[in-house]
Design a protein around this nucleic acid. Structure first.
Length: 207
DNA sequence: CTTGAGATGTTCT
DNA sequence: GAACATCTCAAGA
């Protein structure tokens, strides 16, 4: 019998992504992000996210209008926005808000729950489990996400987000908020959300 | 654990 | 040119 895992649960309904961006960001914590390729399924529980809302947020991609790169951020909610970061990494966002508005939630870290061997194969043999998906570029590498996944449906067969089964859950996640990481504009907006105390969260220790 | 440098490509000034 | 929603590695405390 197949081992229980959020990877086998049904995708969240499209309506999940029509909530306001900050509500989606908080609600994503504790959900399972799953990825299928020919090599198999890999998945993890979301433990850290950041919200970006171009209408009111100078740090957001899409602030000041669409560009070719940010096109899918203006698209319909419930899709992926994947961009290249610092020339060599990729970052995965969940698009929110109605089409025409640029808003998204950056997935910053996962606690790996499924397909760990696959992740190690992609990330390297010396990488500790804790580090497999700790950071937005790292998790994209672990899940083999690239620009070809930009615009992908998050309720689809190859990439989806689902409720996490009870036996994989730690309990009700204690959610904390803080300023976002690695930005230089709108630095005071407390739009980074993470599971307090999780060792899989990027950045500094969280107490 | 910390700090600091370098890699690397697209976008913006 | 400069900046960038980052990561890895090496060296030090």
């Amino acid at each position: 019998m197949e081992t229980t895992s959020g990877a086998s649960a049904r995708p969240l309904p499209p309506a999940f992504y029509t909530q306001p961006t900050l509500a989606v960001a908080r609600a994503l914590l504790g959900k399972t992000l799953a990825r299928r390729t020919d090599a198999g399924v890999a998945a993890g529980v979301i433990v850290e996210v950041e919200a970006y809302i171009a209408a009111v947020d100078a740090a957001a991609h899409g602030y000041g209008g669409p560009t070719p790169r940010t096109r899918s951020m203006f698209g319909p909610p419930g899709r992926a926005y994947v961009y290249r970061s610092y020339g060599m990494h990729f970052c995965l966002n969940v698009v929110t808000e109605p089409e025409g508005q640029a808003a998204a939630v950056l997935i910053r870290a996962l606690r790996p729950s499924c397909g760990l061997e696959l992740m190690r194969a992609r990330r390297g043999p010396a990488v500790a489990d804790r580090t497999l998906c700790r950071g937005p570029g790292r998790l994209c590498q672990a899940l083999a996400l690239t620009l070809s996944d930009d615009g992908a449906d998050l309720c689809g067969p190859d990439l989806w987000i689902a409720e996490t089964p009870d036996e994989e859950r730690v309990g009700d996640p204690p959610i904390a908020a803080s300023p976002r990481i690695g930005i230089s504009k709108a630095v005071d907006l407390p739009w980074r959300f993470y599971i307090s105390g999780s060792h899989y969260v990027s950045g500094r220790p969280t107490t």
